[in-house]
């Protein structure tokens, strides 16, 4: 059910920006989602197809840009991309690790169509 409220939020954000920019239609939506945030793409698309009906966003394609989780060891400075489970620093086995990215979750941009001004 989480994905339904997420999808409603995405729609509200896209409609606001589409209106502000005088769009007649939104064709594409680019979402940025970090690997550590917990959204399931398939169900967002499922809800999207239902709730975007009769809006400026009807039929718009959702593009999910997944960002990998990037970590940096505080002890030795080693930077690494998370593959699978969270681990100690692969270089020095420290557990003092910064998460640099991977927690993003935002609407990056939209593609809109505009009627030409007469």
């Amino acid at each position: 059910m989480h994905e339904l409220s997420v999808t409603e939020n995405i729609l509200a954000i896209c409609e606001k920006h589409a209106n502000e920019n005088g769009a007649s239609k939104v064709t594409d939506i680019y979402l940025t989602i970090g690997q550590l945030s917990s959204i399931v793409d398939d169900s967002v698309q499922f809800y999207w197809d239902i709730i975007s009906q009769n809006t400026l966003c009807q039929g718009a394609r959702l593009h999910f840009q997944r960002l990998p989780a990037k970590l940096r060891c505080k002890q030795c400075g080693h930077e690494f991309i998370l593959k699978g489970e969270l681990t100690l620093c692969p270089q020095c086995e420290s557990m003092r690790i910064d998460i640099l990215s991977g927690e993003e979750f935002f609407v990056e941009s939209i593609l809109i169509e505009k009627e030409e001004a007469l």
Partner: peptide, 17 residues
């Protein structure tokens, strides 16, 4: 008709926040 890319960068949970 013209096409245009609109930068948004808005957090999806911003309304709740």
């Amino acid at each position: 008709m013209s096409k245009e890319r609109v930068p948004v960068v808005e957090q999806i949970f911003s309304a709740n926040d």
